[in-house]
């Protein structure tokens, strides 16, 4: 058993991930289990403001059987003085001769975020796809799944200046400081999504509030997703992540939230970090990377805290003992599903 396994592993890539596209009761799925889908295919229509509709069941004597909950039922015209009509909608359940439907106007389209296959359908809950290419692991997707050509903005660029309409339809990687204003501008320019290393809680809330305001105004919002690779406190992308993003620059990628992944094309060569490559996640050396040398014993760190440590040869040439809790390594490939 190598001492390297004392260091917790963080998944870098997920091979052939199974992803779930969230649905709501009332959404109409157009894909069928077993279908091969391509990036950008419409797989479902989402009802923005579904409402409950009560309609009469089939007439007595009509041998139509009882459809399963989750079935999409076409609309019925009213028959004067005999029978009220019903809008098209998804059946919630049928009870005492009455049907409860989820129905509504203003359908939005839900696109396949990558090439893959429809594995399962849970009506009103989720559409499950198996994706052909690998996924780069992230921590959270804010907004909607989407896809686009990956564009890397320069390391120290100000996103408010670097973003322009020429990037419409792209997924942009924002390596520098990012705020809600820059992301709202990106959405307004028709950019499909953004990949960021971290995003503060306040910016997350502002972004969600901005989307909610536009939704409340009945604006049809184009889907837009922000994939957060790490967390909340500002930090740079790890070298392994930068390398992966660089390798797929210019290719079409997808953004999904369940699990949070950047879906990469299957035909690109991805370089993998060495197994003993270590990333420092916290403390005074946060953000630095290096190589694992072995256990460093129990040591007292600042503040009188004692912790198990590991010896790390940092890339700047120093050898330091750091708490193992502040270290992580990358798992090369993890299978999902």
């Amino acid at each position: 058993m190598g001492s390297l396994e004392l260091v917790p592993a963080r998944t870098l890539f997920v091979s052939r991930p199974r992803i779930r596209l969230e649905l709501q009761p009332g959404d109409r799925v157009t894909a069928v289990i077993g279908d091969l889908v391509h990036v950008g295919d419409v797989v479902a229509e989402r009802i923005r403001d579904a409402r409950l509709v009560e309609a009469a069941g089939p007439r007595d004597g009509a041998d139509q059987g009882i459809p399963l909950p989750g079935t999409w039922l076409p609309g019925e015209h009213a028959h004067a003085a005999r029978r009220a009509g019903a809008p098209a909608g998804e059946l919630l359940f049928e009870h005492a001769g009455r049907r409860r439907l989820a129905s509504g106007p203003h359908p939005d389209r839900l696109y396949a975020p990558a090439d893959g296959r429809v594995l399962d359908l849970e009506p009103g809950v989720a559409l499950v796809l198996e994706i052909d290419g690998p996924g780069l692991a992230a921590t959270e997707l804010l907004g909607e799944p989407h896809w686009g050509r990956l564009v890397l903005l320069p390391e120290e660029s100000d996103p408010r200046l670097a973003l322009d309409v020429a990037l419409a339809g792209a997924v942009v990687v924002l390596p520098g400081r990012v705020d809600a204003e820059a992301l709202a501008r990106a959405r307004a320019m028709g950019i499909h999504g953004a990949v960021v290393a971290s995003l503060a809680e306040r910016d997350r809330r502002d972004l969600a509030a901005s989307a909610a305001r536009q939704q409340a105004g009945l604006h049809r919002l184009a889907p837009f997703g922000v994939l957060v690779i790490d967390g909340y406190v500002r930090r740079a992308f790890a070298a392994a992540v930068r390398s992966a993003l660089g390798a797929v620059s210019g290719a079409v990628v997808g953004l999904v939230g369940d699990p949070p992944l950047l879906l990469l094309p299957a035909n690109r060569e991805l370089s993998l970090p060495e197994p003993d490559h270590i990333l420092v996640r916290g403390g005074p050396e946060a953000g630095r990377e290096g190589r694992w040398l072995g256990p460093g014993g129990i040591r007292r760190v600042r503040g009188g805290i004692t912790a198990e440590t590991g010896l790390v040869a940092l890339d700047d040439g120093r050898t330091v003992a750091l708490p193992i809790g502040e270290l992580e390594r990358f798992a090369v490939i993890a299978a999902n599903g």
Partner: peptide, 20 residues
């Protein structure tokens, strides 16, 4: 808020100093 949210994701981060 950000520091606490970060700790919820990575509870062992910033063990020392004001993290403690």
């Amino acid at each position: 808020r950000d520091r606490l949210a970060e700790l919820a994701i990575a509870p062992w981060r910033d063990l020392d100093a004001d993290g403690a």
